[in-house]
């Protein structure tokens, strides 16, 4: 079976600054990968490379067997046109730390925006599906509310529903609970747990070790742009092998 995400020696630099120094990992279909590590370690950059918000400088990154960002024409790679890149992203949902909901649209309008205008889904079907998704994240009564009227937890759940509306085969979460008040973290993690139990393939950057232990199939600890440790979460959390992992975990646990 082709893995959903396959990274081979992925490198990314911003000018002289090398942020990713050869990331190699795989995520199988239906699996949940959680990435942890100190800030600046490159977790978010790696996540953004997966849906080509950042272009990889070296190495190869595949989603469901497709090379991301480039066309492989035998001897040489060709930069992908914006149109083809947009097509690749349609199947990859992304949830941001600061939600990035569209403030001028209601919760429901946020969700149906991309299906209608990108996928050209019939409007009535999109609304029906949108309401169904809102119901799944427990916010059907907030369909007509604008993002500014939602709490952080509600906004993030709407953002998850918005990503799901495109029927993605892979969901990326970039610190989805880091901007939330502590008492609102649980409701967002609940939705993510449910999603994982339904078999969604997920890559999650987070500081929620409890979530990692409970939901993840694979835990990656990153530091300084490299994967320091990679394994089943209980093992990595309970018996870290590397000094750097031990030092980090002692601070967050």
């Amino acid at each position: 079976m082709t893995p959903m995400v396959k990274a081979e020696q992925v490198c990314k630099s911003f000018g002289a600054l090398q942020v990713l120094k050869g990331i190699t990992l795989e995520v199988d279909k239906g699996q949940v990968l959680v990435m942890v590590g100190p800030s600046g370690s490159g977790k978010s950059t790696f996540l953004r490379c997966i849906n080509h918000l950042e272009q990889v400088n070296a190495g190869r990154l595949y989603v469901d067997g497709d090379l991301i960002g480039y066309r492989d024409r035998g001897t040489k790679l060709h930069e992908m046109s914006p149109r083809d890149a947009a097509k690749q992203r349609r199947d990859i949902g992304m949830v941001f730390q600061h939600f990035n909901l569209f403030p001028h649209r209601t919760a429901l309008e946020n969700i149906i925006e991309a299906p209608i205008h990108v996928k050209r889904v019939n409007k009535d079907d999109a609304i029906a599906r949108g309401k169904d998704l809102l119901n799944q994240v427990g916010l059907l009564e907030k369909a007509d509310a604008y993002p500014a009227q939602l709490s952080g937890g509600q906004a993030q759940r709407v953002a998850i529903a918005r990503a799901l509306a495109m029927n993605p085969k892979l969901m990326l979460f970039d610190e989805p609970t880091s901007a939330l008040d502590p008492e609102l973290v649980g409701e967002v993690l609940e939705v993510m747990k449910k999603l994982a139990s339904e078999g969604m393939t997920m890559v999650v950057v987070t500081h929620e070790m409890g979530f990692a232990r409970e939901v993840a199939n694979q835990l990656v600890f990153m530091d300084g742009g490299v994967v320091v440790e990679n394994g089943p979460p209980r093992e990595v959390l309970a018996n870290p092998k590397e000094e750097r992992t031990k030092a980090f975990l002692s601070k967050v646990l």
């Binding site: 941001f96 996928k119 990503a163």
Partner: peptide
Amino acid sequence: GQLEASTALGMSWGMAMRR
């Protein structure tokens, strides 16, 4: 983040600008 979220949803640059 608005442009980024639109891009992540598969919108082209022009559509993200317009919508």
